[in-house]
Amino acid sequence: MSTSSFEVISPHPARSAPAPAPAPAAELPTVEQVPVLDLPLALTDYERALDWIDAAVAADVREYVCVAAVHTVMESREDVGLREAVAGAAFTVPDGQPLAWALRALGHDINERVYGPELMERACQRAARTGQRHYLYGGRDQSALFKLTLRLRQRFPGLRIVGGWSPPFRELSEAELDAVAADINRARPDVVWVGIGVPKQEKWMAAMRDRLDAPVLIGVGAAFDFHAGLVPQAPPWMQRHGLEWLFRLKQEPRRLWKRYARHNPRFVFGFARQWVAQRRGRPDR
């Protein structure tokens, strides 16, 4: 794998100075999680999630964060690798509006979902002020990744995107994974954004976590395409009412109809069972 693909979007060279000594171990902010259909979801919001990321970078830990929609919850019930990858995350935020509603229905004080694309946007906005270093792994191809990089830098002047690569749509060899890890470590990012879709991004973060020096990895799915301007996002009113799936179905019916037809009804019935079990004061089986 040639490293030239990285260099095309990496105008900020890796720092040549040796890395500073690791900071003393620090206790990260506690993130409470509650299971929805056995998948633990964080009781958090954007600001607390961003504060956790900053604290993790300052403490120089090695963690990753997942974002979950209904699709992730339902797939994890059948895909053992995905379930284990999500379980290994520091926490998983409720990316889908129905998951935020589910947490509220279970009696938890959560005001809004933590939507992956908006979390990325807010993190970039904050990083433009703090100087935090970001790396982009994913996207449709290298051209799309280049567009994403340009748009993010235009929107957030001063944002330090220190590298990126769009992997091919196939399983990478060990030699390629080694090259990816070497490039990311050479760029010395604080945060690696991973946009290769569920379940690939969760499994990639779990598998690569020990190879990478970056303190935080965050999987954000379609956020790359949205922020690159390649795919439109649902109108705010549809997002607020939990109808984003309908908007996306209209955009990509052939790819998504089976997913929604299968997962959405099963989630509704499964969560209804969990809710009734909680109301009766017994665990759901």
Score class of each variant (00 low, 15 high):
177 L>S: 05
197 G>N: 10
178 D>S: 14
166 S>F: 06
171 E>H: 07
173 S>Y: 01
202 E>K: 13
158 G>V: 14
156 F>Q: 02
152 L>F: 00
160 R>F: 00
144 A>L: 03
191 V>L: 14
146 F>T: 15
154 Q>G: 14
160 R>V: 01
169 F>C: 03
168 P>F: 06
178 D>V: 10
203 K>V: 13
187 A>W: 14
152 L>C: 03
169 F>E: 04
169 F>V: 08
180 V>Y: 11
201 Q>S: 09
165 W>E: 01
144 A>N: 12
177 L>M: 10
199 P>L: 08
169 F>Q: 10
171 E>M: 06
147 K>N: 12
202 E>M: 10
196 I>N: 13
203 K>N: 06
145 L>E: 01
200 K>T: 12
189 P>K: 07
158 G>M: 10
170 R>S: 11
154 Q>C: 12
198 V>P: 04
175 A>T: 12
193 W>V: 04
183 D>M: 15
190 D>R: 05
192 V>M: 09
167 P>D: 01
145 L>P: 01
192 V>H: 05
191 V>E: 05
153 R>Y: 00
165 W>T: 11
178 D>N: 10
192 V>D: 03
188 R>W: 06
160 R>H: 04
152 L>I: 09
187 A>K: 15
168 P>V: 06
199 P>H: 07
174 E>M: 09
193 W>N: 03
178 D>H: 12
193 W>R: 02
162 V>K: 02
163 G>S: 05
196 I>W: 13
177 L>V: 01
168 P>G: 09
163 G>F: 07
202 E>G: 09
174 E>Q: 12
188 R>A: 13
158 G>Q: 04
176 E>W: 01
201 Q>N: 06
177 L>C: 07
198 V>Y: 00
145 L>A: 00
184 I>W: 12
187 A>V: 05
176 E>R: 01
150 L>V: 15
155 R>E: 07
174 E>I: 03
149 T>K: 06
186 R>G: 10
147 K>D: 14
172 L>V: 04
179 A>H: 11
149 T>V: 11
191 V>C: 06
189 P>V: 00
166 S>P: 00
201 Q>V: 12
165 W>F: 15
160 R>W: 00
144 A>Q: 15
165 W>H: 14
161 I>Y: 02
169 F>K: 10
193 W>T: 06
164 G>Y: 09
196 I>R: 13
193 W>Q: 03
185 N>R: 09
169 F>T: 09
188 R>Q: 14
176 E>T: 03
185 N>I: 08
